[in-house]
Nucleic acid binder design. Structure first.
Length: 999
RNA sequence: GCCUGGGUGGUGGAACUGGUAGACACGCAGGACUUAAAAUCCUGUUCCCGUUAAAGGAGUGCGGGUUCGAUUCCCGCCCCAGGUACCA
């Protein structure tokens, strides 16, 4: 029979499912290997061709490892809490659990079709109560823990209470809130229970605190960052404001240093590690306190309010002072101004009456700017002078205090010392506002023209550090500042605590109730705290989260539950442990299972999770490790980022309405009721762009205010980018009366009017653009059609053939035929022209063995370095060679089947059976052993080049040494011809590589 | 702005430690088979010059450099994609 992929694939998928071929046990005499994918969110759009890319790669790897004798854990599950299901629920009233269930069924069907070797008996779903019971349980452990900086570990809160009872908190070194009280054991004992809890909350690893959220009053809800666009809600376009709200937070900052250090111990892509490093943002520097000039504005109230609590500095001499964090404390003599964030708490008290108007205007402006605006606009310098001055603690100079939005309130102290000679931004600021610029190092170039951030050379204009070099000066300045009680060395992290909650329905309920306004954990045996039923998935009229709608939902019928739910990253921060022991009702995973599987050996997923999921997972893992619940400090030993599969989006230009009732376009009249739109073909649009100024097109200026909109790629010919107007109108009926302006005329209501004197071109073109594949861009390509047409094995190999795994690439199906042809060719090796099985038991030839061992080696090397595209090519070469050799020998072909099986498992299972092996044993067969003897060559065709340009080749035995090779080459008459009688100045012979002659 | 990745034929890409640039595949062109088409098979296919063949020249984003030899290493620049919190 010819290669019948449909039949073969469904047959084997059924076989694997029925026989649980890939079910794996938590014990084995084989070494363990854990291959995991980032589990998907089951969206309503189903799987698209981008999803399987990583899954195919990890599946190949998992299957390969099985052949190499490992006990392989390769599970799959669903990250099934999320906003889209909830949004759908809001629109339709359908419970998100139902839609989620349906979406999962679609995903499962699609995943099964591709022939993955998942152990489905271990499937997890984050939205299932059996699962989120343990997410809640981990939350409770976090609540019951504090971070002891002395042991550098999380500990039970009870040890902290003991310390408080014994000695108060003076000697306690803990990661905590800024505003902790200072108390003795006696004072602690005198606290009411309420007060004690209040204080303890400031140390817990998960705690409540006020944080700013995107609040949309019209929708009565909090929005995620990506639901906000230019200060308006993406859905509906309602204004969004910043609102303070009590929110659960996770004290991830306690782990900053360990998260940073751990990066050096794991095998992850360097760019990804770099991203995490930048996110954590460790900077070693110093805190410097500038005294505020007395009498600046005393009637306006207190200075640094923070300092009575957790300031790293001892109490200031003056109550009026300003703290600045800097990484270049050595530049302190070059400070000519200080800049505060507009939101800084001291701005109010520092502003003099004369400057009040300026400052108010500036703050107003800054508030309106979105973060995006601030970023895009790095060239514009803005700021305002407060009217006050601070005193440089080292030389007593008066320094003006400004505010500017390039300083962020959330980082460091929200204040910067401006050193224009050394920092480009400060330089721009100084130049713009005409502030002095002082050079501080003798190596600095023309500092009036440009900042020079050098650390080289010797200090000048710098008081007691004049003449010193960088290292010495930095140390000296810090010593001096400490002496003066005006500063000290400090390590600062950019990372902040993670907000842990959202005001939504479809998430894990937080296992907390409130008593006297303080959060309390529910009893552990009440877990899981199941998501209650609600009548609607919207917030309440008073703006409370949807859970407030649940009737009679009270702890012990008395206490209010926490109404927010956990964020998306909760369930995904520990799921790799649940796969180890997914059905356990007593623990999140048994000690034995964790001791056996330990960690994930290979994790494949997208780099978009670099600073979210991957950082939070590492954080929770370290926490679980501190509690002795897991064994490894890092959860994912090796990580590979698969590149993004991009799609080609198609866009059209839609012009705004002009208010006229008809349009004249090139002398033709078109009806144009106010609500209709003019849609301009891309080729016309480009011509307008080019010739906008020409009189011929002057009318176009009126119409020109177009915006680009996505069109479903189903309406467009992907080769010509020609729009099918009929299909388009079917898809978007609101455009049924629109005018479609083509280069030779216009379409409206199905008829075409030709421009006078035009060629009558009635084709309408879209603009293609390569973008991320996404349902919202209408450019997704579904794998189902591909599988229907070519089968799963072809899809698997084709996705790998597309290019390097880690590189992003646009999806195209141009080469898929070649992969399909390859599989047929492979099938035909085993069959004669009439498709009769023809494999024979003869001894292989040298050439056949060479081909086989070449591919054994190549695929081994390629898989180990995740270069799957090159192994597909090598398979093609091997099959071409064997076809050429007319090889039908079992000893060659059987090994070929094993080597290819991770890539194309279905066809290989079928051939394995035809070869007479027991069905289903292929997955656990032994990978053939490479024997280098078969590849040994005794001669090599040396490229002979002159001045680096290859001229000819000479076949020379490899046994000859370079000198002999040289003699042989020079004796060759062909070579002499190229040399034209000249004697080469020099001859380079690299054995087995090349001969190069310099003439 | 900053960080990261990338730029090689008409296309996807290969070239692993500095050693024959363009493997493999798609597409295209020509041919075989066929009444015809599909399928299959064969041949050619970086560009320029050249009727063919030979010979020659250019060539891995651009400009330099190191080297007997550079897609690979170094310096400067341009462009594309992704990320991003102006992080002091």
């Amino acid at each position: 029979m010819d290669y019948q992929f449909r039949q073969i694939e469904s047959e084997w998928q059924k076989f694997w499912a029925e026989n649980q071929t890939f079910k794996v046990e938590n014990h084995s005499s084989k070494p363990k290997y854990y291959v995991m994918d980032m589990f998907p969110y089951p969206s309503g759009a189903g799987l698209h061709v981008g999803h399987p890319l990583g899954y195919i790669a990890s599946d190949i790897f998992a299957r390969y490892k099985r052949l190499k004798g490992f006990n392989v854990l390769h599970p799959m599950g669903y990250d099934s809490f999320g906003l889209p299901a909830e949004q759908y629920a809001i629109q339709t009233g359908q419970h998100p659990a139902i839609t989620t269930e349906q979406n999962i069924a679609t995903y499962r069907r699609q995943l099964d079709q591709i022939g993955f070797s998942f152990d489905w008996s271990r499937e997890v779903r984050t939205s299932s109560p059996d699962y989120y019971k343990w997410t809640q349980w981990i939350f409770m452990q976090l609540f019951n823990s504090w971070y002891n900086l002395e042991t550098d570990k999380a500990e039970s809160i009870s040890t902290l209470i003991q310390k408080f009872e014994a000695e108060g908190n003076h000697a306690v070194k803990a990661a905590s809130d800024e505003d902790v009280l200072s108390f003795s054991a006696e004072e602690y004992a005198s606290f009411t229970d309420q007060k004690k809890q209040e204080e303890l909350l400031k140390y817990r690893l998960t705690y409540l605190r006020e944080s700013t959220v995107n609040w949309c009053p019209a929708l009565g809800t909090v929005l995620a960052n990506d639901e906000v666009k230019d200060g308006f809600s993406e859905r509906g376009g309602y204004p969004v404001e910043q609102k303070k709200m009590m929110q659960w937070s996770m004290r991830i900052t306690a782990y900053a240093e360990r998260l940073l250090q751990g990066l050096d111990t794991i095998d992850w892509p360097e760019p990804l590690k770099e991203m995490q490093r930048n996110w954590i943002g460790k900077s070693v520097g110093a805190m410097v306190r500038f005294g505020i000039e007395r009498g600046a504005n005393p009637e306006r109230g207190a200075g640094s309010e923070k300092s009575e609590f957790a300031s790293p500095l001892p109490a200031p001499q003056s109550s009026l002072s300003l703290e600045v964090f800097t990484t270049r404390v050595d530049t302190i003599f070059g400070v000519t101004f200080v800049v505060l964030a507009p939101e800084h708490e001291l701005v109010k008290s520092l502003t003099t009456p004369g400057q009040q108007a300026d400052i108010d205007t500036y703050i107003d402006q800054a508030k309106k700017k979105s973060e995006l605006d601030r970023m895009a606009d790095t060239k514009t310098v803005s700021g305002a002078f407060t009217g006050s001055y601070v005193i440089n603690p080292l030389d007593g100079k008066k320094i003006p205090v400004w505010i500017a939005d390039y300083v962020l309130a959330g980082y460091g102290t929200g204040a910067v010392m401006g050193v224009p000679s050394g920092d480009a931004r400060d330089h721009r600021f100084a130049t713009h506002f005409n502030l002095p610029i002082v050079a501080i190092l003798d190596t600095q170039k023309d500092v009036l023209k440009e900042a020079d951030a050098t650390k080289e050379g010797h200090y000048i204009n710098s008081g007691f550090i004049n003449g010193m070099e960088y290292k010495e000066a930095t140390a000296a300045v810090i010593v001096k500042l400490e002496e003066l009680n005006a500063g000290k060395a400090k390590i600062n992290y950019r990372q902040r605590d993670a907000i842990f909650g959202r005001q939504r329905y479809w998430g894990e309920p937080v296992p907390v109730y409130f008593k006297d306004g303080l959060p309390q954990l529910i009893d552990q045996d009440k877990l899981p705290l199941v998501l209650p039923e609600v009548d609607k998935y919207l917030p309440t009229e008073s703006g409370e989260p949807p859970l407030a709608r649940a009737e009679n939902w009270k702890y012990q019928n008395e206490f209010e539950y926490e109404l927010s739910t956990m964020p998306g990253w909760a369930g995904s921060s520990w799921y790799w442990y649940r796969y180890m022991d997914p059905k356990n009702g007593q623990e999140f995973a048994s000690k034995e299972a964790i001791a056996y599987w330990k960690d994930v050996d290979l994790y494949i997923g997208g780099s978009e999770h670099a600073t979210g999921h991957l950082l939070y997972s590492r954080f929770w893992n370290k926490f679980l490790k501190d509690l002795g619940l897991v064994v490894e400090e890092e959860p994912f030993k090796k990580l590979i980022n698969q590149g993004m599969i991009q799609g080609v989006s198609e866009k059209i230009n839609i012009s705004g309405t002009s208010g006229s009732t008809f349009y004249m376009i090139q002398g033709l009249q078109f009806n144009f009721p106010n609500t209709e739109r003019l849609i301009i073909s891309q080729n016309v649009r480009e011509r307008i762009d080019e010739t906008l100024v020409n009189t011929e097109w002057s009318k176009a200026e009126v119409l020109y205010a177009t915006s680009q909109h996505h069109v479903d790629i189903k309406c467009v010919n992907s080769l010509t980018h020609e729009l099918d107007i009929h299909k388009f109108i079917e898809w978007r009926p609101e455009f049924k009366n629109a005018i479609f302006w083509c280069s030779g005329g216009c379409w409206q209501n199905g008829s075409f009017k030709k421009f006078e004197g035009s060629n009558g071109d009635d084709k309408f073109y879209t603009k293609p653009e390569v973008e991320k594949m996404s349902k919202s861009k209408f450019n997704v390509v579904n794998p189902d059609e591909m599988i229907e047409r070519y089968g799963a094995d072809t899809l698997r190999m084709y996705e790998m053939f597309l290019g390097p795994l880690e590189q992003s690439k646009p999806w195209n199906t141009n080469g898929i035929e070649g992969v399909f042809k390859f599989l047929r060719k492979f099938w035909k090796l085993f069959h004669d022209d009439n498709f009769n099985f023809r494999v024979i038991n003869e001894a292989p030839t040298k050439a056949e063995l060479k081909t086989l061992h070449k591919i054994i080696k190549k695929v081994e090397d390629d898989v180990e370095r995740f270069s799957f595209n090159t192994s597909v090519s090598s398979f093609m070469i091997a099959v071409n060679e064997l076809t050429e050799l007319k090889c039908a020998k079992r000893s060659i072909l059987q090994d070929m089947v094993i080597i290819l099986s991770p890539y194309a498992p279905h066809i290989c299972e079928e051939l394995w059976k035809l070869l007479g092996n027991e069905a289903g044993t292929l997955s656990y067969a032994t990978y053939p052993k490479f024997n280098p003897e078969f590849l040994v060559e005794d001669a090599f065709s040396y490229p002979i080049s002159i001045n680096g340009k290859t001229k000819t080749n000479l076949n020379i035995p490899l046994s000859l040494d370079p000198k002999e090779v040289e003699t042989l080459v020079l004796a060759d008459e062909n070579v002499q011809k190229y040399l034209g009688g000249k004697t080469p100045k020099k001859v380079i012979v690299v054995k087995g590589r090349i001969v190069n002659m310099v003439v």
